[in-house]
């Protein structure tokens, strides 16, 4: 109950900001909400399926790069065309990378997803045709105006939350939680677990692609650093900070982290040290994240 109220209040407050028209807050909260989409979709893998993936930033970046390519090279701007294309592209890449990575399990899976992420990072970083280390500008943005982009992001966050919570209540979501609990037992019950995990990986990848698309729309550029492993690490941090396996925790964790980052930057030049201390403290003292504080009793 407390959770519902918290979420409704957050969604209403964020929605109301759209009417303020303040440039800074639209951009800042827009960015934070894109972080929410990333964190919720990664939570599907980390918190519910037990897959620690470091490839999440890759799908974010791939969709953003495709949007830049479509608008700059082919003059395809209309979101009705570009949005499905970019999300489908991220999903397709997630299918290939997921199929390869899921051959490995446990810690191998982490390392393999990391390696693919860095492969893509270097591919974009080293080739001048793809913008090199400077990245690319999106010449014409699919959604004109900051407030409109903000509303689109807000709607996307709400939809992603509803979609994922519906998915997790469905039998499919139950199977994923079963896989997290004991992969082998689920397999012996006759579930093709690798296929289930691959589907989850593709869904999460597609949603990361959605986030990348929205980010490129809001900012109008994409660069390889957004695709690299440090970014993936930061999304993982968000999931853990918010509370893995709770969906709303990571969503709110992303907002909190954005604020910490923003005010941390003002206080000290070394705000990364602040984030580092926060990460270490959460891992050591608050393994169930902030949602653990809100919820009190552990999930069954």
């Amino acid at each position: 109950m407390r959770r519902r109220l918290l979420l409704l209040a957050a969604a209403a407050a964020l929605g109301a900001v759209a009417f303020s028209g303040d440039r800074f807050w639209l951009q800042f909260l827009g960015k934070a909400m894109i972080g929410s989409i990333l964190a919720m979709s990664l939570d599907l893998l980390v918190g519910f399926t037990g897959l620690v993936s470091l490839a999440h930033s890759a799908f974010f970046g791939l969709a953003a790069y495709l949007l830049a390519g479509l608008t700059n090279r082919f003059d395809l701007v209309n979101p009705v065309v570009t949005l499905p294309l970019c999300v489908a592209f991220a999903a397709a890449c997630a299918l290939v990378i997921g199929w390869l990575s899921l051959r490995a399990t446990g810690v191998y899976f982490i390392m393999v997803t990391l390696a693919f992420t860095q492969m893509l990072f270097y591919l974009f970083n080293d080739s001048p045709a793809l913008g090199g280390s400077d990245g690319l500008y999106v010449k014409t943005r699919p959604i004109e105006g900051r407030a409109a982009a903000y509303v689109a992001i807000w709607a996307a966050v709400v939809l992603v939350y509803l979609l994922l919570s519906r998915l997790l209540r469905a039998p499919y979501g139950r199977v994923l939680e079963g896989i997290r609990g004991n992969d082998q037992r689920m397999r012996s019950l006759g579930y093709p677990t690798r296929r289930y995990k691959l589907v989850a990986f593709v869904i999460a990848g597609a949603l990361a692609g959605l986030a990348g698309y929205l980010d490129a729309t809001l900012y109008g550029f994409v660069n390889p650093a957004q695709l690299g492993w440090r970014q993936s690490g930061l999304i993982l941090v968000t999931v853990l900070l918010g509370g893995r396996g709770t969906l709303y925790g990571p969503a709110l964790g992303a907002l909190l982290l954005a604020f910490i980052e923003h005010y941390g930057e003002r206080v000290t030049d070394h705000w990364n040290a602040l984030i580092a201390a926060l990460v270490i403290a959460v891992v050591l003292f608050l393994p169930r994240g902030l949602a653990g504080l809100v919820q009190g009793t552990p999930r069954a």
């Binding site: 980390v46 620690v52 470091l54 446990g106 810690v107 982490i110 690490g233 993982l236 941090v237 853990l240 893995r244 990364n272 040290a273 984030i275 580092a276 201390a277 926060l278 990460v279 270490i280 959460v282 891992v283 050591l284 393994p287």
Partner: peptide, 14 residues
């Protein structure tokens, strides 16, 4: 593994 990845990631930042 998740805790290990994150704590050592924190060390990298540090």
């Amino acid at each position: 593994h998740l805790s290990q990845v994150l704590l050592t990631y924190g060390l990298v930042l540090l």
